[in-house]
Design a protein around this nucleic acid. Structure first.
Lengths: 319, 319
DNA sequence: TAAACTCGAGTAA
DNA sequence: GTTACTCGAGTTT
């Protein structure tokens, strides 16, 4: 069985401690970079708000209404669910309960509360970035594995949505929405984050037995990705490094994989399924290994272990 | 089937829009309250840090080392995974890349970066609170349902870990780790967030056919909760209101319920299973309803619909 | 440096 | 406004 090439025992899947440490360090570095614009926002808010002599005057200043709402503890997400009157009420509460009681220092109070809410926003953005970093890491390994084989690659550019020839551009992984190659006269296309019509859900990594010419993303029902038979393999990738989230996110992935399996088997299709995770803890490693043994999963790898990921990519190239 | 008392069609499970709006408003109010100590921290940091003439001098000030680390973008969680040298490196980066370049305003830069990180911390704390609020809401309904029946209740006090008689104390729900009553000469004990030995996992709500005398929490293997046969029902409760999280967290709950079902059936035990969620979207409502129909679940309710929760509590009281 | 819980801060389609 | 993705900020035991 394919996974045996890189996994002898279930413990091989467990993330080594040092990878966790270095994962958190990388993430903190990214966070600091992304923090700068948030700091600039706060400085700008301080300048604008300083024109007000007292909290009530803040309401008369142009362009700080959104910032007031933010300082009132309303996230962008929450804002989407509020009515105009709710927003005004929130700002009124901010003034009454927090800014007016702080007297002369109401500007600092405002800016500080603004930053607290924005800090949560920054955290959210970083969590998305962490997921992207995981996928980029996988892509780098995948491309290298192809290069070793001397395969010609095309990639689907995420921005232009056009297929381009790959020519060893650095940081190409950040542009890749899909990859295409020909192997043993078979057309193969890998697509990331594809809404698979069979399951009506997004799947992180999909390997299709199809040429890019036959695939038009979007809701074109003639596209090859509308045919269940064209799917060779589907995988979930979890790029997060936090061990406290490992089991939580594996449970999610497990349900997602179950939905995929069910939807395809309802069509009498049985594509291979795989899981790649950066944070893998003991108990979930056992569950994953169990699923490999009973064929619910065909392959799995720890994203922090390059050898495992190479072996998994090699397996994908052989499908 | 018991769920039919409050669910006629799967759509009955879907959260009405207005509940989402009011849920976000309540959460923002809680967040503002909890934000105040974070603001105080920042003010204190500003005072202490202002003793430094330049960024390097910050290193000589007592008691602000943790705050420097926080300003360097290291969360409490990340800190747990770092070595001492990593922490010093992080602080060095903060000074070099962000504080020194900002010249005279390095104090504000420091405090602002501190607040960004703390804002993420506040968000985390609020997410925990949101879960507790959900459980408290369930508890209030459960207690009311018992009161209507004229049942005498004991509750397990979360702090003292002792069982006490319930006498209509206000806000009692915040103290409740478990409830006990006698119904038709049967001893019944409900325990929250119990690590169920059968599954070796925590379960949100467990109904045991046992008296409190027979239960000692912790790892006493003579306790009634070590016997799979003593479990009448186990349920997952998801108190979050965010519709964007609804499917995500249902997938987690679904895997958790699957593990429970598997662990008990391996012991030839088949306790009832149930799900209560505050944010229920269309597709997951269909999945839940399907599981009710095929008996994987015996009951389910939308936490924002009091009638549904009362009916579910009534069912628990009849088990 | 265990293990498994809380949930919404973002994001994209 | 829909749906479902990203994942770690806390927390407890």
């Amino acid at each position: 069985m394919s996974f045996h090439k890189h996994l002898r025992i279930y413990e091989d899947l467990i993330t080594p401690y040092d990878q966790i440490r270095s994962g958190f360090i990388s993430l903190a570095l990214e966070k600091n970079k992304k923090a700068t614009p948030f700091i600039e926002e706060a400085k700008a808010l301080k300048v604008l708000a300083s024109r007000a002599k007292d909290p009530k005057e803040l309401l008369t200043i142009n362009n700080i209404n959104d910032a007031l709402l933010t300082a009132a503890g309303i996230s962008g997400k929450a804002k989407n669910h509020l009515r105009e009157s709710d927003k005004q009420e929130a700002i009124r509460n901010l003034l009454e309960n927090f800014l007016e009681p702080s007297g002369n220092s109401f500007i600092d109070e405002l800016v500080y509360r603004f930053l607290l809410t924005r800090g949560d926003a920054l955290g959210g953005r970083i969590r998305n970035l962490a997921g992207a970093l995981g996928l980029w890491g996988f892509t780098r390994v995948f491309i290298s594995t192809c290069s070793v084989r001397g395969l010609n690659l095309q990639y689907l550019d995420i921005k232009s949505q056009h297929w381009m020839a790959y020519n060893f551009e650095p940081e190409i992984e950040k542009q890749v929405k899909g990859l295409h190659w020909i192997s043993d006269h078979h057309e193969r296309t890998l697509i990331y984050n594809l809404t698979v019509p069979t399951v009506k859900k997004n799947v992180d990594i999909c390997l299709l037995n199809a040429s890019p010419h036959d695939i038009t993303l979007g809701k074109n029902k003639d596209s090859a990705h509308y045919q269940s038979e064209n799917y060779l393999a589907l995988g979930e990738l979890k790029g997060g490094i936090d061990p406290a989230g490992a089991d939580e996110h594996w449970k999610t992935a497990n349900s997602a994989l179950g939905r995929i399996r069910k939807a395809f088997s309802d069509q009498n299709c049985y594509p291979k399924m795989f899981f790649i995770g950066a944070a893998i803890a003991d108990h979930m490693a056992q569950e994953i290994y169990q699923q490999l043994n009973d064929r619910r999963l065909t392959n799995a790898a720890n994203l922090t272990n390059e050898e495992q990921v190479v072996s998994l990519c090699d397996w994908l190239l052989n499908l």
